[in-house]
Computed example of a mutant assay.
Amino acid sequence: MAMGLSELYRDLFGLTDEPLIQRLTQLGEIRRLKKGHALYREGERPAKVGFLVQGLLRGYFLDAGGRDITDCFAFEHGAPANASIVLGEPASINVEALEDSQVLELPIVPLLELMEEWPQLYRLYSAFLQKALKCHWEVKAAMYQYDAMDRYQWFLRAYPGLHHRVSGKHIASFLGMTQVTLSRLRRILRESGQLQIAQGE
């Protein structure tokens, strides 16, 4: 890839401490994932923590009836590509690549040791956790406070452009509705001329 690991740490995380960047460069590696590849499986204990460099990932779980429920998407440059909140714990969801993707991976044990040595690294991880918690609260609020149409319009605003990259099946399961309902909402917005407005285009 065109960007080296040291430049990637500066670009993704805004790091400026050269000794820290050097240590991370020694530990990190870029993993390339083919579309459909499972990065994590629920119940497995991952040895590495990942950050999205390029592509699109989906987190999902199976409900009591065995239905595939989309929990989250990772699509922004630098987004954590993890399956659990606490480093080293078993994955609470499955994570798969929806497109050919690239993930920056760091081994968890040495990374935890670096956090003890460099407080700025711990603060960075805490910031990631806060952002992830905020995102999940926003999703939860949308699920409980909005009707189906409002949920879909919220999705278009909160995840701009993602409706072109993600199947209706996955969007519908993420928003807690059937594909039939999602198709009906799309038709209503399209026929009323509101679809582009809702997408912010």
Rank of each mutant, 00 (worst) to 15 (best):
N94K: 04
L57K: 05
R186I: 10
Q120V: 05
Y122F: 14
P107N: 11
E96N: 01
L33Y: 12
G200C: 11
R184Q: 15
R151Y: 12
W118V: 01
E201K: 14
L112V: 05
A141G: 09
F155G: 06
W118D: 02
A97K: 02
Q153D: 00
E89W: 09
N94W: 07
L56W: 01
Y144L: 13
A158D: 00
A127H: 14
K48C: 07
F155P: 03
V103K: 06
A91I: 08
R190W: 07
E18V: 14
V166T: 06
S173E: 13
A198P: 00
R41V: 12
E117C: 02
E201S: 12
A198Y: 02
M149E: 15
E29R: 15
P119A: 13
E116L: 15
M143N: 07
R45K: 15
T25K: 07
Y125Q: 15
L39V: 11
E191F: 03
L106S: 07
I93S: 10
R58H: 01
E29N: 13
L87N: 09
E113A: 13
A83N: 06
G78L: 00
C72Q: 10
A47R: 14
N82I: 06
A47V: 10
L182R: 12
H163M: 03
L98D: 00
R58I: 01
V53R: 11
L27K: 07
Y125D: 12
A127P: 05
E99T: 06
R186S: 04
L5H: 02
V180I: 14
Y122I: 05
Q130L: 14
A83R: 08
R67A: 13
L24W: 02
G200K: 12
S183D: 06
P110L: 09
L39S: 05
M115T: 08
A79N: 09
L195W: 12
R32H: 12
S167L: 06
S126Q: 15
G200R: 11
F128D: 12
V95W: 02
L189W: 01
G176E: 09
E89V: 11
N82D: 10
T16K: 15
K134Q: 08
L133T: 13
W154Y: 15
L104P: 00
E42I: 11
W137G: 00
S101W: 08
L112D: 00
I30Y: 11
L133D: 11
S6Q: 05
Y144D: 06
Q196E: 13
R157C: 00
L111E: 06
D147S: 13
Y159D: 01
E99D: 05
E29Q: 14
E99W: 02
A38I: 12
V180C: 07
V86C: 04
V49H: 04
K35T: 12
A158G: 00
G168Y: 10
Y146R: 15
V109C: 00
L39R: 04
L27M: 08
A81G: 04
E44M: 12
S101L: 04
W154G: 06
H77A: 02
G50A: 09
S84Y: 07
N82L: 08
L114T: 06
I30W: 08
L112M: 08
A2D: 09
L104N: 01
G50E: 01
L133V: 14
E201R: 14
P107A: 12
Q120E: 10
R165F: 00
L175C: 13
F73Q: 04
V95E: 01
S192H: 10
L114V: 08
